Amino acid sequence: MDYRPEPNFYFDGGDLFYVELSIISFRNYILLVEKSFDEQKKNLSEKYAEHYKNLDNSDLFLHTTTSELLEIEQEFIQRFRKSIVIQIFSYLESELKSICNTHSDSTKSIYTVNDLKGNSDLDKVKKYLTKSMKIEVGKFDLWPFINNLRILRNKIVHENSTIQINDGDLKAIKTFSNNKFLLESENPNSEFYNIVFNNQDFLDECLNKIESFIQEIMKDYRPFY
Rank of each mutant, 00 (worst) to 15 (best):
I217D: 05
D220M: 04
P144S: 03
F224R: 11
L182C: 06
F61H: 05
T65R: 02
D220A: 15
E6N: 11
L122F: 13
H51F: 13
N101H: 05
P188V: 06
R222Y: 08
S104L: 01
N148K: 09
K131A: 12
Y128A: 03
L182V: 00
F197W: 05
Y128V: 08
K171R: 10
N179Y: 11
K53Y: 02
V157S: 09
L183A: 06
F17L: 14
H158T: 00
S190H: 02
F176D: 03
P223S: 06
L183C: 09
L69T: 06
F26Q: 10
S58R: 13
E46Y: 03
Y52V: 00
F145E: 08
T175R: 08
H51V: 00
F176K: 07
K108F: 11
V33A: 07
S132C: 10
K97A: 08
L116K: 04
E39M: 09
F140Q: 08
T162Q: 13
Y91M: 11
D105P: 00
H51N: 11
F37Y: 14
N114Q: 11
S120H: 04
K47D: 09
N43V: 09
E68R: 14
S109E: 14
S185V: 01
N194L: 10
E6Y: 10
I88D: 01
H158Y: 04
K82C: 05
K53R: 14
K108D: 10
P144I: 06
R222E: 11
